[in-house]
Design a protein around this nucleic acid. Sequence first.
DNA 1: GCTTGACTTAAAGTTGACTTTAAGTTGTAG
DNA 2: CTACAACTTAAAGTCAACTTTAAGTCAAGC
Lengths: 139, 139
Amino acid sequence: MNYPIGEFANIVGVNKSTLRYYESEGLLTPHRNENNLREYNEHDIGWFQFLLHLKNTGMSMTELKQYTKWRAMGDETIPDRLKLLEQRKHFVEQEIQALQQNLDILNRKMVFYNDQMKGNKYDFVLYPKNNIRFESEES
Amino acid sequence: MNYPIGEFANIVGVNKSTLRYYESEGLLTPHRNENNLREYNEHDIGWFQFLLHLKNTGMSMTELKQYTKWRAMGDETIPDRLKLLEQRKHFVEQEIQALQQNLDILNRKMVFYNDQMKGNKYDFVLYPKNNIRFESEES
DNA sequence: GCTTGACTTAAAGTTGACTTTAAGTTGTAG
DNA sequence: CTACAACTTAAAGTCAACTTTAAGTCAAGC
């Protein structure tokens, strides 16, 4: 089954221009039909979706190109590819941890705001105004 | 305690140019001394570090500016700020989930490569070559 | 009193990852 | 046969978030 660029773009969820750009960078190599039009197949779909996963772990264009080159060179480059993947794994794990820490800060700030609003909303305050404050604004 | 720009930059871990840029965007408003030099204090440190946390959840300059404006407007904007924070929280949670899914794909690929290397490395293979394959390359 | 180094500003330049444009070709529908 | 949509290419433009540059001021050390 072959797909022209527009259909392929829909399937994988990216812009046609982006596909041409990626091809110009060597990440994709669709066949051409007798009129020089691109033809993508199931294999291209699989490969491209894997590329997108790599990209979504934060891999740069440069690393994606390197991976693609290694792939084209065959199985002897599997250790290289593995190393790059391990690196990425480590990177993503760090990133997740950092995000969660930043989320904690947001959560604390939200609790602070909620307390403050409660304090303003009711006539009977839960703790005396101008007394104990668990946090000063934005510190 | 007051800090000149270089010291402040070291404390919060960003470039002096970046601090000037942030100031030009209204995110920071340090005092000036008698020679028009910037002077940062503990309050600036707290605020800026909170800004960095927001930034590290993926907030754009535009949103940071909005938040800063609200803060300058006083407590009546707390509900607005809360809403923005909730939005961010949701966004970060989604992002973490997406990262973890991409990580899963990487892990599967790594298992695949490891199996393939085992198959090549030893004379006695663990499962017959050209027989069961759990995954075909990059699909 | 002059050099040095840290600061000041406004404006221009950089980076990565696209996106848009301009100019041309091709196959099909009316 | 001509208009039209969908493609082709190479090159220029865009965007956010800085970073660098150019030109100048200022206070301290020699």
